[in-house]
Amino acid sequence: MSAIQPPANRLWWKEPIERIEITWVLIAFVWSMVLFFMMPYWHVFGSQNLANEAYKNTPEKFTAKTQEMVDKYKVREETGLNDQKIPVVHPPAGGDVYLIARLWQWWPILELEAGQTYRLHLMSMDWLHGFSLQPENINIEVHPNYEHVLTVQPTKAGTYSIICNEYCGLNHHTMASRLFVTEKK
């Protein structure tokens, strides 16, 4: 009987399975296992893995930390939308760097050195935002009240962009900033 009628054979679960069908099930199963094992494999042998490091935090504390970094390491200013001045900071290599996401701005602008490793702290002050580094195309969700710490290593000097790719209200599309990478000093 067809698929819209009850099975003709009442003991359908006792029927043997056709060769082609069982072969495909086995192939598909093996492939599913490959799909699974690639993830742990990459944790061991790959170098692009998202950090498991995150802390609960408050906007006040995170802002204070960021302000401290800006006060210490500000090198110049850039002009953003509506002639806003945004500080550019060049923190020491290997250290902690902070980036605030808020409606509708990334603050401050970071200047990093190629080949150095940084601990990048990301947090939102209000709603969800999406950290999207272009043209590298690294995309990370930014939450309020969760401080996410990523260990990154810029590979090539140049001017990069950070855009917001999590919808965050009316001016979501204006939320764009820079990230500078200079040669190693």
């Binding site: 953003g80 195309n137 790719n165 599309h173 204006t174």
Partner: peptide, 19 residues
């Protein structure tokens, strides 16, 4: 190529820091 979803203006027109 990194083009975001849910985005009104991927040309970032008038934004000096746009991509």
């Amino acid at each position: 190529l990194g083009v975001p979803r849910r985005h009104w203006d991927v040309s970032f027109s008038g934004n000096p820091l746009g991509f």
